[in-house]
Design a protein around this nucleic acid. Structure first.
Lengths: 251, 251
DNA sequence: GAGTGGTCTAGACCACTGA
DNA sequence: CAGTGGTCTAGACCACTCT
């Protein structure tokens, strides 16, 4: 292992009185020290860590620096912080991953494929109960239902089954969805304040097998996403990916 | 407009019920203002935003506050920041989701199920090429191969196919894996500095169908994860979930 | 009520990196 | 080289929430 510059460490294990600790500069180093306290068991799951100000004193830095380090650890899911309650090591360890989902056209082009798009269905109908549930809508209502296929080099890449809330995005009715996908229009014209994503696997039924040009029964990864603007649902979309599709995240 | 206190409150989405009030302070408000600049097209994809100090002057706050807001937008993938290069609206819109993957035992218990665990296989063998590739290891070597099933109320929940690098985690050989899963031991004893996750769908083959008590050909979501400590691989695991399993993320 | 984290400020200096 | 974001500091005050 090549020793990077952040490697040389001496653990602030037993500070003797008021002698000055070595000051590594940078909140990342402070973060690493605190992380090591947790990983080496000095503080176990559920334990309370010292106050920021005390850590700052021990590590000889400003409280803001400890705060910055703690924010990082909090974002990573390692600790939980509460006013007055202090900072605690998260009781149940988790893996927190970040996942980027690009626009399909961009994704295809980035992989060097020729992007194609095909509208399959466009209708205004009463939304099924499952869609109402996904969007947290109580009363039955009409929505715009759009089915489309994204192609890479002429081959089906992602099948998109989308429902758009007409109360929130009525302008969509005037858009020609046979050329440009609803996704792209929505991204550019309908900002959202909240969304959620669900991932699961399905077997291709006869209809899906035909649309995606795969064998019936093929296992397909589905990315389901719903977006809202201030509690008003905008759209919910079920993206069925082609066989072998892989969603990678790194951190 | 004379630069005064009650300036720069241009949120198109803001309800107009209240009379104009003093600008609320807080980096979240600053963030929302900048976000609206982007969403309303004042700055398009790829455009360069003003310098932090200028935004601070316009919004009448400290530069640190703008910085905090920008960090949030940068984390969310909306803008990209570079020293000297300034802040630019990210050219290709993406959806960035955060995904929490708990320890399986915790997950089962949180859902109210009775957790069970069963060791299927434990062997030290030469790692296949696919595993070497996943861990970025060049030379062939022996690894500990562990197969196990996590149960919920006696039913198969997740099948775990794991390879553990003996150079990095030799202590695992002394652990009794017939009672406690390798996952739990690793989480508590082998901190990692980096990991990646891959998600995809598979069809259950005959062997998998038998292990998971599902029909052959069932579509199963797979969560594949590899962890390293400073470039040294620790473990790579393929977690095959039961039918209907869903991974949800929200933000 | 009081303790703790969260935020803001103002300024200084550093570290990248584009022109 | 010079412009821009990144970080640190020291202090003040606020907001939450635990006891």
């Amino acid at each position: 292992m090549a020793a990077s510059k952040t490697d040389s460490f001496n653990r602030p294990e037993a500070p003797a009185g008021e002698m000055m600790e070595d000051q590594r500069q940078g909140w990342r180093d402070v973060r690493d020290v605190i992380r090591d306290w947790v990983l080496t068991g000095r503080y176990a799951a559920g334990d309370r860590l010292p106050r920021d100000v005390d850590i700052a004193a021990e590590l000889n830095c400003a409280r803001s620096t400890v705060l910055r380090a703690m924010q990082d650890l909090s974002d990573a899911g390692m600790v939980e912080r509460r006013r007055k309650g202090g900072t605690r090591v998260r009781p149940d360890p988790i893996v927190r991953a970040t996942l980027d989902i690009p626009i399909t056209r961009r994704e295809v082009e980035a992989k060097g494929g020729r992007y194609g798009y095909q509208l399959v269905k466009r209708e205004v109908v009463a939304a099924p109960r499952a869609i109402l549930a996904a969007t947290n809508v109580a009363d039955p209502r009409d929505m715009l239902h759009v089915e489309a296929i994204h192609l890479s080099d002429g081959q089906p890449y992602i099948f998109e089954d989308r429902w758009i809330c007409l109360e929130t995005a009525p302008e969509i009715l005037g858009i020609d969805l046979s050329r440009k996908s609803a996704n792209e229009w929505l991204v550019l014209n309908k900002p959202y304040s909240r969304f959620d994503v669900r991932l699961y696997a399905i077997m291709a039924d006869a209809g899906m097998a035909d649309l995606m040009a795969v064998a019936e029964g093929a296992a397909l990864l589905v990315i389901e996403r719903t977006t809202w603007i201030d509690e008003a649902p905008i759209t919910t979309v079920r993206s069925v990916t082609r066989p072998g599709y892989q969603l990678a995240t790194q951190s």
